[in-house]
Nucleic acid binder design. Structure first.
Lengths: 146, 146
DNA sequence: CAGTATCCTTTATGATACTG
DNA sequence: CAGTATCATAAAGGATACTG
């Protein structure tokens, strides 16, 4: 998301006026961070790692990979490093042989998981609508003119 | 996200037990859809388009691109097509010359925006914590052993 | 105007081999 | 065990030209 601002015609801030809380008018810095966080969480593995750690608490590197499933060492390392950098997890190295490294969610990490709960619930509630919309679209509902 | 299930060792379902609501035990299909939706919304443009449409209501193709800012025609087309397919927006073609195509959020689209409000609020609330965590990490707070 | 078609670059992810 | 290093591929994204 580095090269985003190219033609940006003055991105004004909008507020999702919802029931939860009235965030007033946010600033562009915040908007950027929001997108960054969403992108991060959407990077195919972060969310999964977050879920596994929510379920299992303290988990070692290899075990974490097994629990996540289908992830390469490389991506697992990258993902937990990012999460550590963002303060979402703690990484504890036990200087023993063989090495023992344990990962655990921080309070920040846990709260992020909760924040996404709204999305989770939304999908539970509207997932079938999407499925139906797709079927309709595939059947060719596009060319509606007026 | 097509080739996800590779070595997946029986992905059991976890529930973000939060304050919002107790979703009971979800199924793998749901989990997959959740990730799919998150991935979609995180594809760099969907969220932005969603926000613009929330703010402006009915918007034409080119205008939408301007409001989003920095998006290529190709990606804009792709993004709105996906959103249309998922039932998040409606696409209305007015058979006039020059063509006039208007996009608008559906109720489903609006509700998705609201669902992500939790994330938005989380970032507003914890964005600075992440910033501080990054600074600390960059300064070299990693090699904590125990 | 609202796209579609192409070509090209960057980034994400994977597979594999190697190490303290 | 917990990585790192390297090679290779695919998908995302962007730039540009063209069209009904």
């Amino acid at each position: 998301m580095r090269s985003a601002a190219v033609l940006m015609p003055e991105k004004k801030k909008k507020v999702h006026r919802v029931t939860v809380a009235p965030p007033a008018v946010a600033d562009p810095k915040l908007e950027a961070l929001v997108r960054e966080i969403i992108e991060r969480v959407a990077d195919k593995w972060t969310m999964l790692v977050l879920e596994v750690l929510e379920e299992h608490g303290v988990v070692r590197f290899t075990r974490l990979g097994e629990l996540v499933g289908g992830i390469s060492q490389k991506m697992l390392t990258k993902t937990v490093r990012q999460m550590e950098r963002d303060g979402l997890v703690t990484r504890t190295v036990h200087p023993v042989i063989p090495p023992r490294v344990e990962y655990q969610l921080t309070e920040l990490g846990r709260s992020l998981g909760e924040a996404f709960c709204g999305v989770w619930i939304w999908v539970e509630r509207h997932g079938d609508e999407i499925a139906r919309a797709r079927e309709a679209f595939e059947r060719g509902a596009q060319p509606r003119s007026k």
